[in-house]
Structure formats: C-alpha cells, structure tokens
Design a binder for these strands. Structure first.
Lengths: 345, 345
DNA sequence: TGATAATGCGCAACCGTTTGCGCATTGTTG
DNA sequence: CAACAATGCGCAAACGGTTGCGCATTATCA
C-alpha cells in the first residue's frame, strides 16, 4: 500500500477556498497573486508540510533535473573518483545522478541508454565500454534531444562532446623522463588496440623515439586486455625481448601493479632492474613501498566534474530561444595529463 | 526546446482508430483485447519506435522503480564497492539507482533525504555520516511509506533495517590469530569513539584479553578521526608505550596503511618489528609487498548487494494485500567479517 | 462620474498512462 | 428463437501540477 496521502496543492486550495492555480502561483511567488492570499497559502503549505510531488512536475515540465551516468564499472578507482566529481557538481546545480555500469558489455550499454532515455533524464555522461566501436545508440539520442558528454573513454569521432586527458603530453613527459634517466630500451604495456588512448600512446611513443633517434622495436609494445592474466602474458613477452627493456610504461596503475607483481616473481627488483611509469596516479600508489617511479595523473575527479559542468551548461543553453538552425557544435575539453614523479620513500 | 515529440499511446490510437485504453491494454497483453487488434497495435508501436514515457508512468503509478543511495563519500573504495553491489542487484531487478554523498555532513544528509523523498524514490539505502547521532530524518520517512535500509554505518537503535558486518567475530579471530603468533602486547588503532563499530571493537578486545588472562592496558587503545594526521598521532602514542606493542589492529586498511607508513618512518620493519591486522581487505592490499598480515574482510560488495536485496524485498512485500495492522518488523543481516590471512609474497 | 487601466484570481486544458465500469456485438445454450 | 453469457472495446476519471487567457472587481485619471 503506497498511500498515506500527502498534502497536495488541491488540498491547500480546498481549505483556503481558492483555486489550485492560485495556490500554485502563490507558492512560486508569482506577481499576479496578492500579498494577502500569497501569505495565507504559503503559511498553510508550511503548516501541512506540503512538498511538491516532483514526479508530477517532471512529467509536466518534460524534464527531470536528472543526469544519467554510464561507466564501465565501479571497481576501478578511476571511475568512482570520476563519479565523485560528477555527483558533486551535479548536486550543487540541483541535479540528481542516476548511475549504471555497462560492465564493458556493449549490449548492456545499449539497454542502459534506452532505459535512461525512457526515464527522461535530461542528459547523459558516458565513459565507453571497451567493446564499443559503433555509436549509433548515442547518435539516436539526438532525436530525443538528450545531450551526451563523453569522458575518459571517448569516441574517436569528432562529432561528440568530450572531456578526456590526452595521452600525448603525458606520454611524452613520461618517456622523456625515462630517457633522461638513461633508459634506452623502453617497453610499452598498452591496452586493447581498439581503444583510442592505446593508439595515441603508441603513436607518441614512436614519435619520440624517432625524434631522439632511438631504435624503434615494436616487440617492445605489448597489449593487454586489462585482465591480470593477459597482463602477465604481455609482460612475459616484454621481458623475453633481448636486450630486456629496463623500463616499462603501463597503461594505468592497476596494470602497472599487476606487471610489477609479475616482475617480482621473475626476481627482478622494482625500480632497480626494471622501472615502471604508469597512468592515473591513484591514491593507492602513495602507499606502496616501491611505487611506480612516476605516474601520469589524469585527474579523474576533474574529468568528472568538467563533464558534468559541460553537460549542465549545454542543458541551460537549450533553455534559451533557439535561433533557427544553428549548426550543432561540439565541445571538447582536454585535460593535460601531468607526470607526477614519486619521491623515494 | 525540449521537443521533437515522441510517439505516444494517443498517436497510435489515432492512427488505428481505436481508443487509448485499447492501445494501453494491447501493449500490456491484457486478455480483454482481441488477438487481431493486439497485433495491429503492437506492430504499429514497433514501427513507430514507441517507448512508454516513464515519467508519466511513475506519476500515475506512484512509484518510480528507483532507489536512492546515501553514502558518506565515493572516495573510499569500501563505498564504491558497496555501490557496485547495490547497482548490480538493483538493475537486475529493474530498479534504477540514484546516488548522493553526505560528505559526512549531517545537514547535507538531511537535505538529500528530503530531495529523495520528493523525487518519490521507492526506497532508500543509507550508510550514515559520521556526524549522525539522531535519526528523526529517517523515521520521518515512515509517514511517506518509504522504507530505509542501512548498511555498514548503521544506527545503534533496534528499530531499523540493517546490514552490517559485526566486529566481534572478526575482531576475535584477528586478535586470537595474533596471540597464537606469540604477540602479547597488542595495540588497537580504533576509529572515532562514537561509532558503533569502534565500541564493539574495544569491547571485544577486552573480552578476549580477559579470557586469555592477558593484562589489559588501555594505553594500547588509541583513537583516530580517520585523517592521516590523527592516525599518525595515535601511532605515536601507541609506539611510545613500554613495552612497545608488537602488533596493531587497525580499524581499516587505509588507516593501517597510514600507520604502516608512520612505522616505516620510525625505522620499524613491517611484519617483523611490528605486525598489522586490519579490516576491509581492500583489493589494494593484494598489491603491497608487505601487506598487513591479515585483514578482516567486510565484503562491501555483498553488504551493498544484501542491502539492495533486502530493500527490494520489502518493496515487493508492500504490494501484497496488507493485513490490518501487522506490527512493523525490522530485518537484520549480519555479515560475519572473516579474517583473511595474507600469504607471504 | 464615467471611461479606462490595473489588480487579483478562476477556468480549463494539458502532460501520457492506467483502469473500473459499462455498452455493443457476437456466440452459446436450452 | 429467446435469453443469456462471453467477448472486445470505448468512456472518462484520475494522478498533481503549470499556465494562457479571460473575467470581475477595484483603483486611477480626466
């Protein structure tokens, strides 16, 4: 039984012998209502503990002040930090946040999008599943006027709103850092090949080696599908190269940790026989005795916050009178990953 | 402009020259509708890409298939894991999840509850802010028939639904483990005194020492407010006791890590000069070279999943015909924290 | 004082869907 | 063939608010 009935605007109207429209307006301080009645209404509302039924308002206004968030999972600290940022800026703009996890499954991602659409969220923030290579389920949203902002794992096409950290500058810094430390054989422990960031990383890697006139050996670029087994396998490949790489750039901290475990098992001393540099700079690394030498910080909280900000911005633009056929424009925020060098502990 | 108008049930009705009620029923496979028209309706619906407007349904049905979640923050892995569990079981039961963070601020917690109520969530899952000692904002929800389930940080009063892991069994195991390893001076690095779990832990600690006929020295019980500074300070106290404790039970992994850092700074060898046992057993500990000797696993994912399950259960009970004045009952799930002994690595 | 303007409020439609009830039409039975 | 039952569908109210428009009533001015 879903019913101890709450006071409604009608109830107030009846008790005061005025119309519901009057009550509604009075509660909104509409100028067309006399001070006298406005007061009476507001007082009674207070007294009855009246609270507007948002579901009714959502329905009527055709907007819900809710934004949907789709991420691959919540297990990775990167994403929960991002949601922290999203929730924070959303709530301070009176938006609520609906979250769901795609679990890196494309079908699931699709279903989630449909549900969010039916729930009439005002906008959606997405970090792509690693399976996603087509974007029709997102472009479809345009018909429904639901803006989408991607973050971190963003589509490689231009016609989307995105917030992401570019691999280039961070990767450049990281590799140059290693070169300056004297490393000449630098391995790359990269993510799935179809991911934008993986490609960027490999690209940058090659460029720098060329610039520095170092030999490029593609045997030093390995890919992992992000599972531990796959990472260990990739490490096995890398460590079997001759001469063995003396440093490894890993796609993120978790992967680096897995890799370091593997290296330890092979009786290699971390930061001595082999050095690691990774991405993300998660809080956990600060607790390690032998953390990666450096991490490219990707500011997940900020990415989330920026994405939410961008979305809310777009939503408030929509309110304004729409000039005929403005061409649709897409926003892009690139957060520069920054190399954080971990002090010895 | 929030309006490329979507196909509605009315639209379908018009095109087929039937009434909206017929369409509605046809789409729900209501037996009162002939096979013939049912087919026509469903076909056209398909063709028009009709999707029901959930906001309308929410409004009409007075339920939203949404559950609200209030946690202190998303930064702690414990909570994001819990949300993982919540989201997972919620979504497989067709519920959506609305999250917000109290940031350990009571006022904020109150506001969130009000918003969730106005948004007509069907139920709420809460882990209390550490400031919360009064529960009127939750009891108020009973008037609105919104059930609440607490997890982890739960109220100490009996008349609430809760899921939590009891400190007793885990703490007992942990301390006995240490005693068996030969430790006689065991320190406790406890949380804020007002938290239920802190009290329980201290209580159990004393009991066991008594049972084992060991001397109780309250100088070995220190409190931290969970900040790193405070933890270090507590550690300073503990390490200055004479004889120095040879083992420490810390309230959770983060605190243990902070404490271990401090110990290292004091030139103590972890797991040799001083051992640590902590609570939570977060994934990160598996990456440490010298993890705590053992952790009491608290199964955050399961706590979340159980809490969601309990809530959804309560919600579906509500559907059933309510016998007059059943006394309200409250459910309790206690998850036994289990001591996980970390293998040497 | 009469015309006009300003003020204060009510009417009613609308948002999209669900559902109890009732009315035809058709089929069944004695 | 009459009486009745079953079948298939429509009417209309309801959920709780918002809002354009219009109508009285009062105030304002010449």
């Amino acid at each position: 039984m879903k019913d101890t009935k709450l006071p409604t605007i009608k109830e107030i109207a009846k008790q005061l012998n005025v119309s519901v429209s009057t009550v509604s307006r009075a509660l909104h301080d509409h100028p067309g209502i006399g001070l006298r009645t406005r007061m009476r209404v507001q007082q009674l509302a207070q007294q009855l503990n009246y609270e507007p039924n948002q579901t009714a308002i959502f329905f009527k206004q055709r907007r819900t002040f809710t934004i949907g968030v789709v991420i691959p999972n919540l297990k990775e600290e990167f994403f929960s930090q991002a949601i922290d940022g999203i929730e924070e800026t959303a709530s301070s703009n009176k938006y609520s946040v609906l979250i769901s996890q795609s679990k890196d499954d494309l079908e699931r991602e699709r279903r989630i999008i449909t549900t969010l659409k039916n729930n009439r969220v005002d906008g959606i923030i997405v970090s792509l599943s690693k399976q996603t290579t087509t974007y029709d389920h997102f472009t479809a949203l345009k018909k429904y006027n639901i803006p989408v902002v991607f973050f971190d794992r963003v589509p490689s096409l231009p016609d989307f709103n995105k917030v992401y950290s570019n691999m280039n500058s961070g990767t450049r810094e990281a590799i140059e850092f290693l070169i300056e430390k004297g490393h000449r054989r630098i391995g790359v422990l990269n993510g799935p090949e179809q991911m934008r960031s993986s490609k960027e990383r490999t690209e940058t890697y090659k460029q720098i080696l060329i610039k520095r006139r170092l030999k490029i050996d593609m045997g030093l670029v390995a890919h992992t599908d992000l599972t531990r087994e796959s990472t260990w396998k990739a490490m096995q490949d890398l460590l079997s190269q001759r001469p063995r790489p003396t440093a490894i750039v890993a796609i993120n901290d978790y992967i680096a940790l897995d890799a370091m475990q593997y290296a330890r098992q092979q009786r290699l001393k971390i930061n001595k026989d082999i050095c690691f540099v990774s991405y993300a700079n998660l809080p956990i690394t600060s607790y390690l005795e032998n953390p990666p030498m450096a991490s490219v910080e990707q500011y997940p909280y900020d990415q989330g916050a920026q994405a939410a900000g961008m979305l809310i911005n777009i939503l408030s633009e929509e309110e304004k009178p729409t000039r005929p056929d403005e061409p649709e424009t897409f926003q892009n925020i690139v957060i520069n990953g920054q190399l954080i060098i971990h002090g010895k502990r």
